[in-house]
């Protein structure tokens, strides 16, 4: 056990491990690229959907069921399925990651919108604001903390799951996990897994700090 951790330490800290195409720095950049792009696409789909459902109050049933359906969808299966349908491309990775992230974004955006005090909404309307103005100037800012939480949750899940890109022959930190498993090289597997966990935890803490900073003037 001790020997294993010593080897793991050497693996993580040696300079040669960090450079080159198969180096940690490059794999880390790939991993972040997949994760951020997938989360952005998911946000572009999920945010308007959640805002619309929250604003109109229609389709809440759909939103809630979408969330539980998203949770039930096995990501590994989805990746393989899209891979078999599309062949060797980035589609399987992005479809699976976006499908994973959209439900979290939609439900949290919707939850944020429903948490807006109806009296505030009425007051905005009473002042003569139009539907679009109420949405953008009143509801959206008030719902923002919960929306941010949804985005954060989605990003963390995507970072954790982007490991799967390596399964369909792409890069990212998952490369070490799958190559290590294939080569029965436990140190490499553990190193990859530890790095993914580290990135996920760091991003989560950083975003939590950002969130606290942005909403430091709010009491609720």
């Amino acid at each position: 056990m001790y020997e294993l951790f010593k080897n793991l330490g050497t693996w993580l800290t040696s300079g040669s491990q960090w450079s080159g195409t198969d180096g940690i720095a490059h794999r880390l950049a790939e991993h972040l690229e997949y994760s951020l792009l997938a989360t952005l696409v998911a946000a572009a789909i999920g945010l308007p959907l959640g805002l619309l459902i929250g604003h109109t109050g229609k389709g809440a049933f759909v939103a809630i069921n979408l969330a539980s359906f998203g949770r039930a969808l096995p990501t590994v299966g989805l990746v393989v399925l899209v891979f078999l349908a599309s062949g060797l491309s980035m589609w399987p990775v992005y479809v699976a990651l976006v499908a994973l992230a959209v439900p979290a974004i939609v439900t949290n955006t919707y939850a944020g919108m429903t948490a807006v005090d109806p009296d505030v909404r009425d007051a905005a309307r009473g002042q003569g604001m139009r539907g679009g103005q109420v949405l953008l100037q009143v509801e959206l800012p008030l719902a923002l903390p919960l929306i941010m939480t949804g985005l954060r949750l989605a990003l963390i899940q995507v970072v954790a799951t982007a490991t799967i890109a390596a399964y369909v022959s792409f890069g990212g930190l998952g490369r070490y996990v799958f190559d290590g498993l294939a080569q029965r090289d436990l140190v490499q597997v553990l190193g990859g897994a530890a790095l993914v966990a580290l990135v996920a935890v760091t991003l989560d803490l950083a975003l939590a700090a950002l969130q606290r900073f942005l909403f430091r003037h709010r009491t609720a």
């Binding site: 954790a160 799951t161 490991t163 597997v189 553990l190 530890a194 966990a197 989560d204």
Partner: peptide
């Protein structure tokens, strides 16, 4: 429990291997 949740599932399985 929140921190544990951020660890990728594949990583948890792999970290448990030893």
């Amino acid at each position: 429990s929140n921190v544990l949740f951020t660890i990728p599932s594949i990583a948890i399985f792999v970290l448990l291997l030893p």
